[in-house]
């Protein structure tokens, strides 16, 4: 960004004649970008407006801002949609998956990046191939296997599926962060008598925190938003995450836009707060994650 900024700065200094043309072009750029921004934002604005309206108000004025703001929708959606239960469930799925993923993925990535035991290359190849296997290839046998092991419909059953699904991404990302560390620091710690576990927790972990934050965000967002696997493996409403529960809620209150909009806002609220607080990590993390898988 700054690099390109410099070019146009130089333009204005050396090519005064063309500077007028430049600024005209940027007006065009901003126009296009504002239109696209509107395309992204208007649906969200309508959602927010509708969540604050009465049914009657939506009928008469489906797209504009609410005439009188009604908070009641949120209370009703919260209760009718069992959000107290499903929010708790989703938090369990997200926190458990992130924790396990970071601990187990951190250990594995450390071993692969810093120790390279015999067989490492083969293991990386395994994860590379595995990351291209579509979920549809194994979802049916996995379902049968989960049923056989009495893990169908349980929290830990879905959580280990999430852990496994995110494992290749976690290993690739964390390994790439760890591989760049200079080994002198670790060697110094070893000379001071640190064991492998201490080297990992005292030296490597603090230096690769951004990597862990990135993986945590990408995995957490993925699990919070996940629908297909939860639909397949969880059938007890008391263990539904917000997504599958909300999909049923929308079917039930199909025409009640005020209520379904309020429910949608409840689900996206925690994500938006985190996104606005950690934009850079989110955007760069998801971009990196998208390329690595």
């Amino acid at each position: 960004m700054t690099a390109i900024g410099k070019v146009s700065l130089r333009d204005t200094v050396f090519q005064r004649g063309r500077s007028k043309e430049r600024s005209k072009l940027l007006v065009f750029n901003h126009t296009v970008l504002l239109l696209l921004t509107a395309f992204a934002v208007i649906p969200l604005a309508v959602l927010l407006f509708n969540s604050l309206k009465t049914e009657l108000d939506i009928g008469q004025n489906p797209l504009g801002p609410p005439r009188t703001i009604v908070i009641e929708n949120f209370r009703e959606a919260w209760e009718e949609g069992d959000f107290a239960i499903t929010m708790r469930n989703s938090v369990i799925y997200v926190v458990a998956t992130i924790t396990a993923e970071l601990v187990l993925g951190g250990l594995a990535a450390y071993a692969l990046a810093r120790k390279r035991p015999p067989g490492s290359d083969l293991l990386m190849l395994y994860f590379l191939v595995a990351s291209t296997i579509p979920v549809w290839m194994y979802i049916v046998p996995l379902f049968v296997q989960m049923r056989m092991m009495k893990m169908l419909g349980t929290f830990h059953g879905l959580i280990i599926i999430y852990i496994a699904g995110n494992a290749p991404l976690t290993i690739f990302l964390l390994r790439s962060y760890m591989i760049d560390l200079p080994s002198e620091l670790e060697d110094a710690a070893r000379v001071d008598g640190a064991n492998e576990f201490q080297v990992l927790t005292r030296i490597v972990l603090p230096l690769t925190k951004p990597g862990f934050l990135t993986v945590g965000l990408v995995v957490g967002l993925g699990v919070w938003n996940e629908y297909t696997l939860a639909l397949t493996f969880i059938h007890d409403p008391n263990r539904f995450p917000v997504t599958t529960s909300f999909a049923k809620f929308v079917d039930r209150f199909d025409t009640n836009w005020a209520l379904t909009s309020a429910g949608a806002i409840i689900i996206l609220f925690p994500v938006m707060v985190l996104f606005l607080a950690l934009q850079r990590q989110f955007i760069e993390g998801l971009a990196e994650g998208g390329i690595k898988t």
Binding site: L104, L107, A111, P117, P118, Y138, I163, A164, A167
Partner: peptide, 27 residues
């Protein structure tokens, strides 16, 4: 250089084999 690194790798690898590799072959 061998045992401990593989002990570090094992948990995630076992979970992954259980969830992805075995069912994929069964599929």
């Amino acid at each position: 250089n061998v045992i401990i690194p593989w002990v570090f790798i094992a948990p995630l690898l076992i979970i992954h084999i259980f969830v992805v590799a075995i069912p994929a072959v069964q599929g």
